[in-house]
Amino acid sequence: MSFCYNHLKVLLIVSVVFISACATQEPYDYTALQESKPRSIVIIPPSNNTVEVNAPYIFLSTISRPLAEKGYYVFPVSVIDQFLKENGLQTPAEMNTIPLDKIGQHIGADAVLYVSIDSWGQKYQILASTTIVTSKLKLVDVKTGMTLWEATAHAEKSSDSGGGGLAGALVAAVVTQVMGSMMDQTPQVSRMANNLAINDGKRGLLNGPYTPLELKK
């Protein structure tokens, strides 16, 4: 009986911790974003903290859509990348050092989205593999240098083993890992991560100028 009671006590403590964790999440402070009211966003190719060399560029193929659907003008990501390369900035690391006044002068964007990629790709487990993407997003006002919005975009997708018991799971894991090497899951997971971060009800990005009036609250 006391065993059961102890378990209940632990459960109670754990749930209180969980609930308080939810409650203490502070509401996002949108003051700077509301004052700046950016109309346009230029995305600088991400700095990469992973070993996946393609990560910054795959990321670029997953960010225009959620930002534009949020109502912002998004500069053409790969034209901007080419433009920066033509101007002597060969790597994303170098591109992340451009002074804001140069961005204002040559691109005319209201805000810059800086991105750093912290995890990218598949983690193999015994029965399945999980594709994980984590990137940090930071929107900065080009004129003032103020941070307007920050978020961590994170998503995971596991290729689950389906039915068929342990043997089935073992076979399925091999199949999805083989398939996974041909079918890159990272764009899908990165898209999911960006969508979640940008559209989060409490800490997401606010609507931009192209959001239709009936959707603005």
Binding site: N54, Y57, I58, L60, S61, T62, S64, R65, A68, E69, G71, V77, S78, D184, P187, Y210, T211, P212, L215
Partner: peptide
């Protein structure tokens, strides 16, 4: 889910392919 503002078509997959 809100109706998309735009038709995106192949734009993002072209970017993906061009780089990868």
């Amino acid at each position: 889910e809100a109706t998309p503002l735009y038709h995106w078509g192949e734009y993002e997959s072209l970017i993906y392919n061009a780089y990868t």
